[in-house]
Design a protein around this nucleic acid. Structure first.
Length: 276
DNA sequence: ATGGCTACCTCGGGTAGA
């Protein structure tokens, strides 16, 4: 079984590239992030034509996550238990007191489905924006709540769970072209790195590192400043799996070629080959 | 020193990404 994760950075702008990735890697399952569309805008027919069922959640032009599968797609969940919401802080005059009590909306950043016996989650962790931005606190809370949910999913030692996606965390200094460029910014702060690493304490293994231990093995390159030709990238797309699933991983590959050419996403697919 | 790109909304320029 082959399963992959990819932040496609707008699905509608890259339907052809996405179908080509499915075919090139002979994928059974693809976890997609940043579809940037609402459900009614999602090109389901193109995927069906290629033999894939799709579960998608998208509420606006932002975020949006999906799972495409040709090995079944059961028990779809469009958020995880306890997933925090976010709303920009209100500006100007104070709203009526009743509005203050309204929970911020849960964003389309997590979708889960069971595919071929594996509980797959496609996750788009909030960016954080800046260390003094409310979005940063949201990011930390989001990772904590995900950790709590993931702990529950891993209680059964035979559970096969894969947490796939764009984690928006640079876990090691060698996961970035120059960590000095990130001083005082998000993605490298101790709190983020601790929140990311905490999944190891509740039964999960980050299998992409295990199989691709090389330093500077990036999964993202900025569109700006010729980042890709200069290989100034980041490693921020990962796969935490339960022990029973980690045992099945035979290889992990980073599809660096996908960053080339006109119309590339700024992220590339990460592919896991699983033993049957 | 700044922004340098791409995509979304929609046809000008704001929001977001990392």
């Amino acid at each position: 079984m082959r399963i992959a994760t990819w932040n496609v950075n707008s699905l509608r702008a890259r339907v052809d590239r996405t179908l080509a990735v499915l075919e090139r890697w002979d994928l059974d399952v693809l976890a997609i992030q940043e579809t940037k569309c609402r459900d009614e805008q999602f090109p389901f027919a193109a995927f069906a034509g290629a033999g894939y069922e799709v579960a998608h959640t998208g509420l606006s032009q932002w975020n949006g996550v999906a799972i495409a599968s040709r090995v079944g797609l059961d028990d779809v969940a469009t958020s995880f238990p306890g997933q925090p919401g976010f709303r920009k802080p209100l500006t100007g005059s104070a709203p009526p007191a009743t509005l203050l009590d309204v929970e911020p909306p849960v964003e389309a950043r997590a979708i889960g489905a069971t595919c071929g016996g594996v509980r797959v989650w496609s996750l788009y962790v909030p960016h954080g924006r800046a260390l003094d931005d409310p979005h940063y606190r949201y990011k930390l809370a989001w990772l904590e709540r995900l950790h709590d949910a993931a702990r529950d999913w891993a209680v059964d030692p035979g559970a096969q769970v894969a947490l796939l996606g764009d984690w928006n965390v640079i876990p090691l200094d060698t996961d970035v072209y120059d960590v000095a460029d990130f001083a005082g910014k998000t993605h490298v702060s101790p709190l983020e790195r601790t929140a990311f690493g905490a999944f190891a304490e509740v039964g999960y293994t980050e299998v992409t590192r295990e199989h691709v231990p090389a330093e500077h093995a990036y999964t993202y390159w900025d569109y700006q400043r010729l980042a890709f030709p200069r290989d100034k990238g980041l490693r921020i797309d990962f796969a935490w799996t339960t022990a029973a699933l980690a045992e099945r991983v035979r290889s992990v590959r980073i599809d660096r070629e996908e960053r080339k050419g006109k119309g590339a996403s700024d992220h590339v697919p990460v592919i896991l080959e699983l033993a049957d």
